[in-house]
Amino acid sequence: MKHILSILVQNRPGVLARVAGLFSRRGYNIESIAVGTTEDPDVSRMIIVVDAEERIVELIAKNVHKLIDVLKVQNLTHESYIDRELVLIKVNATPRTRSEIMQIVSIFRAHIVDVSDQSLVVEVTGDEGKIDAIVSLLRPFGIKEMVRTGRVAMARGAWSDEGQQQRPRVIA
């Protein structure tokens, strides 16, 4: 099963390697990872998607939490959350197929951000289902290149991380 871990860390060199190392150590591949600073520039958030059994994810999460630079670990899979990914897709497009692709792009509320005589670059944002759907529809035209940001996710509702450092940790 896929799990989305939301990890708050101190913004320091090496912290990404420390966290990632705990996944590889147990032989699990990180499916995607997105890292950026939070509202507090000293704190970063990592959103890690990993495909593993519940028990293993919990063990890894506990070990992640033990890292000195890690402030909080939360498994969003257990909660109601919003997730998004941004994808750039360079797809073959001839004058004959261009309008058909543009129709698909418009249905998905995606954008065309670059055009050449043989290709289009589509920018699409959405959750996993939407991305999978547009990718499978564009595939028959020939996808020349695809770049994905990895998923970012956030718990729904008014609850926030404000003052979280004092709050009990969700996982460990």
């Binding site: 060199p13 090496g14 390697a17 420390r18 190392g21 150590r25 890292l67 000195i68």
Partner: peptide, 14 residues
Amino acid sequence: ITGITLPITKHNYL
């Protein structure tokens, strides 16, 4: 050495 000892220290500093 901080990279090498990442998985065998409780914490390390450069």
